[in-house]
Amino acid sequence: MESVTLYRAPTTVADADAVADWLDARVAASVSVRDRFLSLRGDSELAESFAQARVLSPYDRETGNTMLGIVRYEERAIDSPERAGGVIYDGLAVQRALHERLPHSERSLDHLHVPLLDRVVGTWGDHDGRWHKRVHVLGQPAVVSVPGLYEAPAKPEQYYKEQQKHALLSGGAPPREVLENEVEGEFLVENDPRTTDAIKGYVLQAYHYLDTGEAFCDEETCRLHNPHRQPGVVAAQLREPEFCPAHAERYRL
């Protein structure tokens, strides 16, 4: 691996420059940062690609709604990302659409692109016939979903109960501080100040996968571990040690 390019997600609290500095200190490749991928490479055809990648139902493998109004929504979401939300996209379809927009001279596997996205992505589970939200989709480019960090790994059951109760009483989602005080367990929520630190490990996973062919680490306290529940995310990404002994040899400072 010769180079890694990260792309900012300005509508989120994820700091791509801080992630890049952290990664640059741990890998041999040169690391750079560019502005938001969808702003740099967005066009009307990309909007249609997002419309085609929309998940229509949690239990329906087929995706896509390319009615004019939906495509127009996707165009507005590319131009004004703060207006987007509430949609899940097929992560592999999004990855293909973004790959088509990489500069031809930068498509080799020696140059990893990592767009931080403000969209929720998922992959289809053949084992249970439903869509599953994901934090990232590995490959070229490696798609890292910032809202996926909050939504994909499962939170404690009490979290969802408190969320529903608050919605019934006030008509909206409870503030982060309320949930943290009322729900036992560790988890990340939207705009969590720990987002940047957690995202670092997922970006490293993307690098590690393309550089070595290895997906994830089985050690629950390693940055390269990919847990399915929020307490596991906190343990892997926000607690010491950063790496298991094997990966510490490769990525320690």
Rank of each mutant, 00 (worst) to 15 (best):
L117M: 07
F37D: 03
A152C: 03
S49Y: 01
V144Y: 13
L98K: 09
A53K: 03
I70L: 04
P175G: 08
F243N: 00
R223W: 15
L117W: 12
V143P: 06
A246T: 14
L138F: 09
H247P: 00
A51D: 04
A51S: 12
V178Q: 05
V178Y: 14
P115T: 02
T66L: 08
P103E: 12
R239C: 15
R54G: 03
V94L: 09
E151T: 03
A9G: 04
T195P: 05
S39L: 12
N191G: 00
L109R: 14
H208K: 06
Y209C: 07
Q140V: 03
G122R: 00
Y160R: 00
A154H: 11
L112R: 02
G125M: 05
R76I: 14
A84K: 11
T212C: 14
L238A: 06
Q163C: 10
F37E: 04
D24F: 08
V120L: 15
A154Q: 06
H225Y: 05
A142C: 13
L210M: 15
L210T: 11
P156Y: 14
D24A: 14
H136Y: 15
Y73E: 06
P175S: 06
R250V: 14
H132I: 06
L188W: 03
E45F: 05
V19K: 03
V33W: 10
L169Q: 15
E106N: 01
H225A: 10
R119G: 04
